[in-house]
Each structure stands twice: as structure tokens, then as C-alpha cells.
Simulated assay, not measured.
Amino acid sequence: MRISEKLALMERIGSELQTRFSFAEIDIFLAEFDVETTPISINSKRLYAKNALRGHSDETILQIARELELAQGTSAIADATPPRNWQGTSLFRLFISHISRDKVKATRLKECLAPYGIAGFVAHEDIHPTLEWQEEVMRGLNTMDAMVAIHTAGFSQSTFTQQEVGFALGRGAKIISFEMGEQPTGFISRHQSLPRRSRTAEDIAKEINDLLLADSRTQEKLRATKPAKTDFDDDIPF
């Protein structure tokens, strides 16, 4: 969700709580969503509620909006619904853009990123068979914290991967170009890419983690994640 959309939704929530509840009732209501209120010297329930919502995740804001029946007519509600494998997670969300024939490489990288508290999204692995493929991809793009693009041979010729990268650029999201047989093209070619060389997936995952921690757009979210534990199968190539 864009910052402007989030602020607008917080304004609607604050206005709705102001008309429905007293200050004490707002405290009780927001506590159900793990939102703590802080006493401030102001006699406006709307501003009081908005102040309490500062710094909370998109998911929390959207959950409150749904409870207050403010979802109708708000495009951000649908846009910020994560794909199935990201629902309920507090981990860092990394969209892994790749061409279909290299899904094994993308999955391998996803597994190696897991110990760093990074939940990768690999379209050809994470989309449930009964869910519409394109819709889940859009959910991933809308709710990702950053993107890594695996530039294998043919990446620049894929309509889907180029659209994914363009979407990330439009959102102003952090994009890491992982050069694995093909150099980045277009707008992202001006940024230094991450070369494969002879490094393993574990090595690349560590560097991706370091790059995300060094970027002001992603470091705070990544530091807040809880590292997972993953066993690697070293027989898998790459």
C-alpha cells in the first residue's frame, strides 16, 4: 500500500472511531488489534486514534478498516491482500522474479534466504493450484518489501518478468538484480548487479541479506523479522 493510501485510510479510521466511540472505548477497540494508545494533549478522538496507528503495518490498518466496514471502495484493501504463502507472516517479503524454466534456481534461493527471516515468493511454487495465477502474482507484487530479479538467459525477453520489474520500479521498491547468465537491461541496468561468479546459493543469499540491511527502504523491516531455521539439501545444484 502506498504511503498516501495508508494515510488516507488512517484518516477514515480515525473519523469513524470518533463518531462511534468514546476515548475509553477507542482504547479497548484498538487493543484488540494489539495497537497501544498513548495519552496526548489533544481533545480530538480522530487525531488520538490516528496517533495510535502510526508505525503499524499495512495488514493491521487494513484489518481495522475491514472491522469498521470501510473496505468498500478502497482499492488499497484488495491491493494489500498478500498471496497465500505470505498471509500471517511477519517475515520480510521478497518477490523472486524469474522465468518459468528456472523455477528450481528460484526455489533454491528462496530456501537459502529463509534463515535470514526472508520469506521468498516464487510464483511457480507458491501459488495454490486452485487460485488464479495472475491474481496471486499481483498480490505478491503489491505486498512485497523488495524484489530480487534472477537474470538468467531469456529474462529480458519474458513479458511477465519485465512487467514485474516495471511494477516494482513504479512502486519505488528495492530491486536487487542477480546476474546469472544475462545482464540487466532497461531502467535497472544503471544499478550495479549482483554477479553469480562461482558462489553457491547460500553465498548469494547472504549478500542479498546484507544489501537489504544496508538500504534505508528495507533495513528496518528486515531487522524486525524473526529468523527461521531451514535445512539445506547440498545435493541440489546452485
Rank of each mutant, 00 (worst) to 15 (best):
F95L: 12
I236E: 07
M10W: 01
V122S: 14
L7I: 11
Q192A: 11
Y116N: 01
W86K: 14
P83C: 06
A153W: 00
T89D: 06
P184F: 07
A149W: 04
A71H: 12
F23W: 11
E164Q: 10
L68R: 13
L194K: 02
D215Y: 01
D126W: 04
I236H: 02
L7Y: 12
R66C: 13
M180Q: 10
T185V: 11
T37P: 03
E69C: 11
A106C: 05
L194E: 00
I150K: 02
K206P: 00
S97H: 09
N209K: 13
F21A: 01
H151C: 14
E132Y: 09
P129N: 04
L169Q: 13
I61P: 04
I208P: 05
A119T: 02
Y116D: 01
K110Q: 14
F121H: 13
A52D: 09
M138P: 00
A65Q: 05
H191D: 05
I175G: 03
N43M: 12
G154Y: 04
T218I: 05
Q87M: 14
E16S: 15
L47D: 13
S158C: 09
S177H: 00
E132S: 10
I61V: 15
I64N: 06
L109Y: 07
P129T: 08
A65L: 07
T161S: 13
E59C: 02
D145T: 01
L109P: 09
M10L: 05
T159C: 01
E207A: 02
I40L: 10
Y116C: 00
